[in-house]
Design a protein around this nucleic acid. Structure first.
Lengths: 232, 232
DNA sequence: TGCCGTGATCTGTGATCACAGTTAGAGTTA
DNA sequence: TAACTCTAACTGTGATCACAGATCACGGCA
């Protein structure tokens, strides 16, 4: 009973329950904006699509409901919550405070490997957005990769987890919009802010890193609010 | 079909599922520190205690696992996560940043009714802690009431929700300790900090409100860390 | 033609059963 | 006495069934 635990290791890695897999899939749909606010979700239909019974889906959905990333209405319907302009402004303020704080911490605590992955993520997104025919889903994914490369550099698992929960709420609004309206990507605001953030973190400049993330978040939020498509 | 919706109202209020009730009960146990880190929890046993089948408990537990307030080990055992000193320091830093921010926002956005409930909570806790024989569980509850009165005054539902999740993680460590070691309560540090916070918020002094909350949180954390009872 | 009642179908919630894996303890052996 | 083995009871996970309530389309009435 003493194989060098190598098998033991691979076994414990793919040892994820169906519920966790379902959660990961649904969370990805939300963060990347492939589920729109107000869109309904049926447990049984989702279970069919994922090829499992409804039990794993129930667990995944109850987790997402706990995070307010989904809601179940009084009429027993699961849907992506609608967000009012006021709620979106609140969410944006909180994101600026917390993600800005994380960026400042990243400027203080980043190591070389953090800088490398931030730089790589920034470059990949810059290339994609300068392409004549950008792949929007990929751009959304790369944007997420860049931001989380920054937040990981703060070396605070708890902070990273909180931010992930915020993106679960913001994804359906922001990334859905980005997919539908690529102009902002073409305009290159995000690219500029990202470059500033990378430089600030590399230089250890807390304030600039915080300001850069804040500008990026509020820039995207203003586009959404200006469009005026939010509920109530 | 047009009763003035009065009946409609009462009905929609008590419309909570067994799962939600189970969640509320378990969350309360965690926040108030009646469940210690490392303590195991059996779904079936909990279901018996709560007088329901295991289904509602499963939903409640999966929510708490999503918030990292509980964890299920690879051996299929649900327990309150053990916290290393490093993790506790990370949690404390994040709490200082976020709860401090909330206190600052409270100083900016509080209205008269916020000030009234903050003052009431502060006074009740001061009385309890000055009593010759303080009721510790009640003191823990009053402390929570005061803090959340402050955070509610920031008028940011999202921020309040995030802080609630942080308390879910910190409760088993901090409040368990407070129950076991009442000296800190007797010493009156918390009472002094609370008074400062109340005054700062009433005066609209962001920085002082933030500093007061930070001092309260780190004061409690230092006691825990000094005791040295944390894991790994 | 427009409206309302009605039933089939779908919703999430809860209970129960089945299963594989772990744990703990009694019983046995060295 | 100590260690080892094996079994019985327990663990969370998943599937399936039952149920009350909501939805929606169809058919009949005005």
């Amino acid at each position: 009973m003493n194989l060098p635990a190598a098998l033991n290791l691979v076994e414990s890695l793919d040892r994820q329950t169906l519920g966790e897999r379902a959660y990961a899939q649904l969370a990805d749909l939300l963060i990347s904006g492939r589920l729109a606010p107000g869109e309904k979700l049926s447990l049984r239909a989702a279970a069919d699509v994922l090829g499992v019974s409804i039990m794993p889906v129930r667990e995944a959905v109850s987790r997402l409901v706990a995070d307010r990333a989904l809601e179940v209405t009084p009429n027993r319907a699961v849907r992506v919550p609608l967000m009012s302009a006021a709620q979106f402004r609140d969410l944006t303020k909180v994101r600026i405070a917390i993600e800005g704080h994380a960026a400042a911490q990243a400027a203080l605590h980043r190591d070389q490997s953090d800088l490398a992955s931030i730089a790589r993520a920034e470059e990949e997104m810059r290339e994609e957005s300068r392409s004549p025919k950008p792949d929007l889903p990929r751009a959304v994914e790369l944007n997420k990769t860049f931001h989380f490369a920054v937040y990981e550099a703060a070396h605070s698992p708890i902070l990273a987890e909180i931010i992930r929960a915020l993106w679960l709420k913001a994804g359906p609004v922001i990334n859905l919009d980005l997919r539908a309206n690529p102009e902002r990507l073409a305009k290159g605001d995000a690219i500029r802010f990202h470059a500033n953030v990378r430089k600030a973190i590399a230089a250890g400049d807390e304030a600039a890193a915080q300001a850069g993330i804040a500008a990026d978040i509020s820039g995207a939020a203003e586009v959404i609010l200006a469009r005026g498509g939010l509920a109530g």
